[in-house]
Nucleic acid binder design. Sequence first.
DNA 1: ACATTATACTATATGTCGCACAGTATAGTG
DNA 2: CACTATACTGTGCGACATATAGTATAATGT
Lengths: 115, 115
Amino acid sequence: MDIQSELMNITSEMNRGFLQLIILTFLDVPSYGYDIIDSLEKIGYKVEENTLYPLLRRLEKKEVLISEWKVVDNKPRKYYSISKYGKELREEIMKIWSIQNLILQKLSDGRKENE
Amino acid sequence: MDIQSELMNITSEMNRGFLQLIILTFLDVPSYGYDIIDSLEKIGYKVEENTLYPLLRRLEKKEVLISEWKVVDNKPRKYYSISKYGKELREEIMKIWSIQNLILQKLSDGRKENE
DNA sequence: ACATTATACTATATGTCGCACAGTATAGTG
DNA sequence: CACTATACTGTGCGACATATAGTATAATGT
């Protein structure tokens, strides 16, 4: 079992759900695809275009995000922002994330006690 | 868009990866399926049998877990424990989890600044 | 003694999404 | 003019949590 490929696999699994939370948190301020990628990369989280754009479309379809074309610097850009419904969803997802952290904390503490 | 069904969906997505981390953290001490379910439920994390058993089998197949049948209280039980390779994997997954928390923290802090 | 529930597990199918592959269009740079 | 960067769209695949369905045995209630 090659740990590197296993890690790539599990990273992908862990990104599910997390990516959505990241995007919903980021888009309080409207932004467009390429800018989102740049900004996330600057804080140490690399998302490929081919991952982000389909996600943005899916979230828009679910009415979690709202989009609007604008022309900036003579370029058309699709600006996304979180919807009201998206904000409600984000709060609930944050709760799930907190619960998961709590559970992991409890298990890690229990593990240290058993060492 | 019904937020309840959306939440069930995203909970499922967020469990991917997380469940594996939970199990690897829990199985420093050997345990069997039903006991794992009970113990996790006691600390507030509900996992269905039909979710856990296939996961245990997948992780064993990947040589992340080791299993061994034992008869206890006159009942056959399959005890699982984490392998050496599983421990290496777990350390790496914990790093990913920490990075994700860091990224989320940065984004949340940035969001509060923009409020 | 029988029905029901609990314990403990196995087998298989489905839906979702991150990722990969492939592409278009325009602007900027060498 | 060739190449890279910017900015996006369309489609298919693989992995896994979940759901459905099941077997086997023990414990409990009537």
